[in-house]
Amino acid sequence: MIELISRDRCIKCDACVEACPDNVFDSRPHEIPVIARLEDCQTCFLCELYCPTDALYVSPLRDDRERVDEAALIARGLLGSYRRALGWRGLKASGTEGDLSHRLAEPDGTPHPQ
């Protein structure tokens, strides 16, 4: 579930509010968004991906809360790690040319089981 919106990094653009498919955040005038309905978070990591300043952290845990420490997350290279792994530039989809999924296909080219 979403565990962190960094006060230092957030620029109040509300991209996460828009991106979340489950309406977990509420936007607030002149303030950083608030995690208003944590129980609705499905842990899809897409708010994090859509954050232009890598201010969000989604813990992978579905049901349990995880106490997170921003400095430690930064030290472990976890803030923005999904975006970097995909090769996104800002909010723009990019980096698919480096996708090596073809190695996972069967020798005849049939896509591998899902």
């Binding site: 897409l46 698919t96 999924s101 073809h102 996972l104």
Partner: peptide, 22 residues
């Protein structure tokens, strides 16, 4: 429309996988 398909190890275009967010 802007989806950059990768090439496989033989240099052929590979369209057998679609990255969801992109």
């Amino acid at each position: 429309w802007g989806y950059a398909f990768p090439t496989d190890d033989r240099g052929a275009l590979y369209r057998g996988s679609l990255r969801g967010p992109d």
